[in-house]
């Protein structure tokens, strides 16, 4: 069996483990979805009827078997709270999360790579002395804090950007694509993407810098210097290209991690993405929706891990993945 085949089997196994954990985690948590409907007129009969309607009257193992059977058929079930198919809800929120994540990641990694290379080049200078603590501070700062600061300055203060949402109130579009590529959407995307990018840029920057510092010690760099190439040419054309490998891997993993990790930014900016949906689902014990959202996030993460592994092997043929040559 080839390397790719092995990795695919591993990926399926990981997804099964995640699916099982998701199933157990939500059912072992205190409470059930009927608690969302506690009301003065609610009776025990109503509550029991609700449990039957949600299939929660069945023994746990029966629920689990039904869940696995549905998963194999590609069915994630219907949301308890909204009644609609989970896949439909997730696919509705996913483009917004992907748009936010990708734009932030691209900005963060472009900036991180360039700034990381620059700081490696400027090692020991005053610029590095100021920049590194600043980068560490933005990396360590909570996302919600960064988001609120940006909102306070650029939305509430100067009024340059909207205070939240993915489109202006009442804006109408012919299709989701039309909306995603509208100026109004981009205008709403800028501030949350910036907040996320400021948070994300620390990793590629520090990674690029440290790898660059290693690469700059390599013999081929010394050779380039001996050839009389300019320092800038050495840094950009020779060293940086060789230092990009771990950054590319981090980028792939970053996509996977960020799809589920935007909960805070999405909440601060009222961005109707997957992360915010996940929070609502967990708070409301909406098991199918929470399971489905987690599973899709996990699938993206596993897929990106796989891509990173394959990418690594492709970018650097020295990486053998344990294969015997």
């Amino acid at each position: 069996m080839g390397y790719v085949g092995q990795r695919l089997i591993q990926a399926v196994f990981v997804l099964w483990v995640v699916a099982t954990l998701c199933f157990l985690m939500f059912r072992l948590m205190p409470g059930d979805p009927t608690l969302n409907y506690i009301d003065t007129s609610m009776t025990e009969e109503q509550r029991q009827n609700m449990l039957v309607a949600f299939g929660l009257d069945q023994p746990l193992y029966v629920q689990y078997l039904i869940y696995l059977k549905n998963l194999l058929r590609g069915e994630l079930g219907n949301s308890f709270l909204q009644g609609r198919p989970v896949l439909e809800l997730v696919l509705e929120a996913l483009p917004l999360t992907v748009a936010l994540t990708l734009s932030a990641l691209i900005v963060a990694y472009i900036f991180g790579v360039i700034a990381g290379a620059f700081l490696a080049w400027k090692r020991g200078s005053l610029t590095e002395g100021v920049a590194i603590p600043l980068v560490l501070a933005t990396r360590a700062a909570p996302e919600f804090w960064l988001g609120m600061i940006l909102l306070a300055i650029f939305a509430f203060g100067y009024g340059w950007f909207p205070s939240g949402g993915a489109a202006s109130a009442g804006a109408e579009y012919g299709s989701e694509w039309e909306r995603l590529f509208s100026l109004d959407f981009l205008y709403h995307l800028l501030l949350p993407a910036l907040a996320l990018a400021v948070y994300l840029q620390g990793l590629p920057l520090l990674l690029m810098r440290s790898t660059m510092l290693e690469v700059m010690q390599d013999e081929f760099v010394t050779m380039a210097r001996m050839k009389g190439l300019s320092e800038w040419t050495i840094v950009i054309r020779h060293a940086a290209r060789n230092a990009l490998l771990p950054v590319a891997t981090a980028f792939a993993l970053g996509i996977g991690g960020s799809v589920g990790g935007n909960v805070v930014v999405e909440t601060v900016f009222s961005w109707p993405g997957l992360g915010r949906m996940l929070v609502t689902a967990v708070q409301g014990s909406d098991y199918p929706l929470a399971q489905g959202a987690f599973l899709i996030i996990a699938a993206v993460l596993v897929l990106m891990n796989l891509v990173a592994d394959l990418l690594y092997g492709w970018l650097d043929p020295r990486v053998s993945h344990g294969r015997k040559g």
Partner: peptide, 11 residues
């Protein structure tokens, strides 16, 4: 409009 950030509603 669904706005979960209370402070943002004032903005």
């Amino acid at each position: 409009r669904i706005v979960q950030n209370v402070e943002a509603t004032l903005g």
